[in-house]
């Protein structure tokens, strides 16, 4: 039987000031999975990652990485993990090639092997030309990529990324997505926390949602999205509509004379909607989701309203 990449049982963390960050958390992530860990700010995501990577002392519970307990076999467990933290934590005065080589050394790689791996990671993350620069000379996007490069130096089996695309432009975000997909295709397990829910929907197969220190959802992305009761679409029309439309029991409103918002409840199809529009000689030039599907579910599950200012 293949050991899960991550197995968490009855994990709790109460900080010294009394804040309960994790409350009896159980979670399992399969080997090879691309897993999204979502939750509102302060839900406990970073604490959970902190406990797994031993940056936070747990109050109770058990954590196993690839079958190794982080308390009794901490060395083997840590060897399997690569972590991309949310904030930059580099020595600002050290050349980036040195940062990566040292990281390999801390994991017991010989200087030669660590240097070779560091060079490979810098090429992979498109940072090779900057290898002699220090982190303070890099842009925000480059520093984000450097965080990923450093996490990959020792070739971990489980990669944990805490908001890896926060604050980077679309182009870099897409390139990081591509890289994460590639890493996952290479049989590495990925745990991703992100605030960009379309990122989680696009990349991840399974999802856990944490709220107030508890896992409230742990399922596959497909099953979760199927729970969505209704979806709103924005339709851009080829010509203006001047008369009220006859759309049976589809609820809709005109945003302007060429833009239509339609709510598609469970059981209704886009095919039927287009059929009705077609009969009234209304041509749709393009269509998009009003909001990300996962976002709608997330807000419903965590009890937040999208109308909240």
């Amino acid at each position: 039987m293949i050991e899960p990449a991550l197995s968490i049982k009855s994990l709790s963390k109460t900080y010294r000031n009394g804040v309960v960050a994790l409350n009896d958390v159980d979670l399992e992530v399969k080997t090879g999975d691309f897993f999204a860990l979502l939750g509102p700010n302060g839900a406990g995501k970073s604490t959970l990652i902190g406990v797994i990577t031993s940056l936070v002392n747990k109050s109770a519970g058990k954590v196993q990485v690839m079958g190794y307990d982080i308390d009794t076999h901490f060395s083997q467990a840590k060897n399997k993990i690569g972590v991309v933290p949310q904030e930059y934590n580099f020595n600002k005065f050290e050349p980036i090639i040195e940062i990566l080589t040292n990281q390999g050394g801390y994991f017991g790689m010989s200087r030669q092997a660590a240097r070779a791996s560091a060079e490979e990671c810098l090429h992979k993350l498109n940072l090779w030309k900057k290898r002699k620069d220090t982190p303070q000379e890099l842009s925000g996007g480059m520093n984000r990529r450097l965080l990923i490069a450093r996490a990959l130096v020792h070739d971990p089996e489980l990669l944990i990324l805490d908001e890896p695309t926060a604050g980077v432009d679309i182009e870099i975000r897409r390139s990081i997505w591509q890289l994460m997909r590639k890493i996952n295709e290479d049989k590495k397990t990925i745990i991703l926390t992100t605030h960009y829910l379309e990122e989680a929907e696009s990349l991840c197969r399974n999802i856990g949602i944490i709220d107030s220190g508890k896992i409230i959802v742990n399922t596959s992305m497909r099953l979760l999205l199927e729970k969505l009761k209704e979806e709103s679409f924005i339709l851009y029309l080829q010509g203006p509509v001047t008369q009220p439309l006859e759309l049976e029991d589809f609820s809709y409103r005109m945003l302007d004379d060429r833009t239509l918002e339609v709510v598609l409840s469970h059981g209704k199809t886009l095919h039927r909607l287009f059929d009705l529009l077609n009969r009234q000689a209304v041509t749709v030039s393009s269509i998009r989701n009003k909001a990300n599907r996962l976002e709608e579910l997330f807000l419903a599950l965590t009890g937040q309203s999208s109308d909240t200012p």
Partner: peptide, 17 residues
Amino acid sequence: SSKFQRHIEEMLVSPMP
């Protein structure tokens, strides 16, 4: 300074005893 810049975490996440 490794605490202040948080790069002490490079060591803490590693298997170094």
